[in-house]
């Protein structure tokens, strides 16, 4: 039986390479074999027979009510662990609808003796290390401070940029007008001295921004003259 299909591809029977007698499965000599199954079985196979109807009664009703109560209770108890709050990008109106369900049903009191060390609330120390979110009023003031800082740094940056620009422009001017070279150098020196003074003061209150501003304005005036008038 085993040798039949090997040599000539089922020469004897003409039934393909089967290692067993197909007739054993109940297929007659002339019948065609069913084709290969190429698809997975359906996800929702049709119901061949209708199931026996359930006989519900008052007992089942009571059990279902009990179950509903039990699940509801757990849902609002601390045993229902809510996912960690996501960091919000912006506040949305829909947030107010998805308010996390508060644990109405009191806290669970644990008998810590029966828990391993790592599960005991020592872990809450780790929590405390995290900076607590600042209260509302403080938040505003800190924002203000940050805002002020932002402004000053921004101004500093701008100032530096302008200085560089000045230098470049001035060097260009130097090339053009060699007469005023000495004066310019003096001016630069003055500027440096001014900067030093300001550094000593430790405040960036009256920066040389305004000092430079004079020359800048002059140039701007020039530019304005050159440029189109809107």
């Amino acid at each position: 039986m085993a040798g039949r299909g090997r040599g000539g591809g089922g020469r004897g029977r003409g039934r393909g390479a089967m290692s067993f007698n197909v007739e054993q499965l109940g297929f007659g000599a002339g019948e065609a074999l069913p084709g290969p199954v190429l698809q997975p079985p359906p996800l929702y196979p049709p119901l061949e027979r209708r199931p026996v109807p359930l006989k519900s009664g008052s007992e089942v009703e009571y059990l279902l009510a009990l179950k509903r109560d039990y699940v509801e209770f757990l849902k609002y108890s601390p045993a229902y662990v809510l996912p960690a709050a996501k960091v919000k990008d912006i506040e949305r109106y829909s947030d107010y609808k998805n308010v996390e369900t508060p644990n109405k049903n009191g806290a669970l009191d644990y008998d810590w003796k029966r828990f391993p060390m790592e599960l005991r609330p020592v872990a809450s120390v780790v929590k405390k290390k995290r900076p607590p979110p600042p209260p509302q009023i403080k938040g505003k003031s800190s924002k203000k401070v940050r805002f002020a800082e932002d402004v000053s740094t921004k101004l500093d940056e701008l100032e530096k940029l302008e200085e560089q620009g000045d230098v470049e422009e001035k060097s260009e001017e130097n090339k053009e007008e060699e007469k005023e070279e000495g004066e310019q150098q003096e001016g630069e020196l003055e500027e440096e001295e001014d900067q030093d003074e300001e550094m000593d003061d430790g405040t960036d209150y009256v920066n040389n921004y305004f000092d430079n501003g004079e020359s800048y304005l002059d140039e701007e005036d020039d530019n304005l003259d050159d440029g189109p008038v809107y």
């Binding site: 662990v81 960690a84 828990f115 780790v126």
Partner: peptide, 17 residues
């Protein structure tokens, strides 16, 4: 990939029940 504190909380509950 949960926070450690959350896993601890879950384990507490599972042990308790």
């Amino acid at each position: 990939k949960l926070q450690r504190s959350q896993v601890i909380e879950c384990l507490r509950i599972l042990v308790r029940y």
